[in-house]
Design a protein around this nucleic acid. Sequence first.
DNA 1: GAACTCACGCGAAGCGCTTCGCCAACTACC
DNA 2: GGTAGTTGGCGAAGCGCTTCGCGTGAGTTC
Lengths: 400, 400
Amino acid sequence: MSKRFDDSQDATNTPSAKSRAKLAGLHSVEQSSGGYAPVAEFRRMTPTRPATMAEIAERAGVALSTVSYVLSGKRPVSEKMRERVMAAINELDYRPHGPARALASGASHTIALFMPSPLWQLLPIHQVFVAGATQATSASDYSLLLSTAATDPDTVAQVVARGRADGVILMETVLDDPRVERLQQDGSPFALIGRTRDTTGISYVDMDFGAAVELGLEYLARLGHTCVALFNFPPDLLDAGLTAAVIAQEVFERRAPEMGIRGVHLPCSHEPHEAFEVAARLLRSEPECTAALTTGWQFTGLLRALRAADLRVPNDFSVVSVIASQFAEMLTPSLTGIEWPAFEAGHRAAEMLIEQLTTRDAPTRQHLVPAQLAVRESTGPAPRGRASMPAPVIEPIGAG
Amino acid sequence: MSKRFDDSQDATNTPSAKSRAKLAGLHSVEQSSGGYAPVAEFRRMTPTRPATMAEIAERAGVALSTVSYVLSGKRPVSEKMRERVMAAINELDYRPHGPARALASGASHTIALFMPSPLWQLLPIHQVFVAGATQATSASDYSLLLSTAATDPDTVAQVVARGRADGVILMETVLDDPRVERLQQDGSPFALIGRTRDTTGISYVDMDFGAAVELGLEYLARLGHTCVALFNFPPDLLDAGLTAAVIAQEVFERRAPEMGIRGVHLPCSHEPHEAFEVAARLLRSEPECTAALTTGWQFTGLLRALRAADLRVPNDFSVVSVIASQFAEMLTPSLTGIEWPAFEAGHRAAEMLIEQLTTRDAPTRQHLVPAQLAVRESTGPAPRGRASMPAPVIEPIGAG
DNA sequence: GAACTCACGCGAAGCGCTTCGCCAACTACC
DNA sequence: GGTAGTTGGCGAAGCGCTTCGCGTGAGTTC
């Protein structure tokens, strides 16, 4: 049924069998659909079929087109007519038919949001983007179409070309994103959460990951840490050229030495077991490392590895993560973070796109969220002497 | 821009001002849209307008209707014709036009998913439902429309009535849900994540919260806990008759005494500060309480209150939560939980709905996820003597 | 080989709306 | 009072597809 996490679970040989059993254990009941019969009958007796514009026109004693113009306001209609039409609309509780309107006008009043490709890589942050976009979309009286399969430029393009949506929002963009190029070619409106190498004429909202890494490093340097790890986005995304990942690496490797920090760059998935492994290896091989920066949810595995190694946060080890505040505050200890206001980002991206759709010659809007540090409980001064402590023996803990 | 959490933040007088400043601080750039001009020009020169069925028909030298029948298979077409048509389709890279198809056939091949009403109450679990439903929907070649405004039965009904979706998925259902009644009246297909009082003929997937509470209590009783709190869904949802909340309360209040447990029932929002307050009050007023059950994310506030009171988990206090395993394992310590396989639930709900849409006389499917305990790190034997310890002085910690 | 099937294509009528072009009635002006 | 200019309403032609009913030619039957 669901494939999420399956591969990683198989790889680490963990609860995959368990979760399969869990699914099989779903308690199923089947009933004949007889229960619906009375309802169906009821319907047949009372033809509640929604009113059409033709019926409104008839009832109001006007032409079909007049009703349309009253509704759209695209041509002046006399007050008298307008009132008659509105009365009929209210009496019959008329609502326009979506697809018909879309077909005739060529605009579906819908935007599509594409989820990052491998769906099982879904991060909490992505979901918050979605929530923000949903909110903004509803507020502007648009609809939101949620799709997977974001990798294929064709799929993305077709959604607009075939009238399902008027524009799209893309996330997890890479430096030279084929989807973006395709959309530009087609002249399809779009907005990004993230950005590309060349952002000329492209509307986007993105976190300034370069500034984020820099700010995190500065802060940790000030606390006296001299060896810091960066848990960057996973290798596959880095290789794919994920803009955020590339920038983070570049800045990290350039700035850390300048601040007198030994930097350890670790591309690493957010999957708890993998992040745990990576972190455990780090703690073993780099005893001087006393702090880490994470670009996402790699901190879950890191925190467990620290616990397994009997290292206390923040006394023995400091953790800074790029993260939405609602998540940072959910944890105990709460996480010091570079704020990534994801809900607002999703909201803004949808707004930008809708602005493009509703106003001609809309300006290109580019929002780069500046790095802001929120100091919470997971960071402290660099400890002395961890380097001289015996290398820890680390074993997985808990359900892992 | 975003109103999420605003009310609760105002109530507790916390980072609302901060987050507003953060928004204002978004770095904005505006460019003239001149960047688009060349693209628009390029388009005008190369009319990439997608092919229509009429063009396929012409190219294949057959009637329009034949093309349609080849595509739908609703009437037999000779092999020769079919090949000619398919060839034309491939050559012109034809894709059907969504709205046109929806208008003509009356089916949009889309399902709508309604998010719980106050969007800012969004829980991680809801997002996972969405992810699961998205996955299933894409797998069945359907589209997913994501909407807010779930409370109003009219809004929900109109989505189907006006052709935007063929059916809907509802979550956060109450015992006598007006939306469900309305959908039944209209004869609109739907599926629930959650359930109603009378589930005759209704397809749903739901967690068995009654069994969950019972299992949690049994487990805690076996560990020797004699006073247990239930952090139930928040008061407003309980008052509204949220099925899960009502069942949880009923079972808790009936079963706890039978097991020799003093039960403290605490309706409580998941909002960290509110949950913190409720938990802090509990720890102060019920020194004998050594364990808690939470129906959702109230554990975040609870864990912080425990930390503030210097109570260790699980040594001094045990926590069991109804939770999706991926979240339980994300935390440190990981959370003992009653497994709520939310991704699978969302997936299943979408499948159920699509089954109703694609097969006539589809059976009513009802999946009640049985309570399953996953023991992790947040539970242990009841401590002795917390009752005799001095009542703790509790102060908010960290960013709170 | 005439009558009768069938299988398979075709044309045309919508689905519910938008939008264009046109015309009637009314104002304004010399 | 005649002509030009305006306002506001109407009809009809689509948008791209589905689907119904009919017609035709090949295959069958006696």
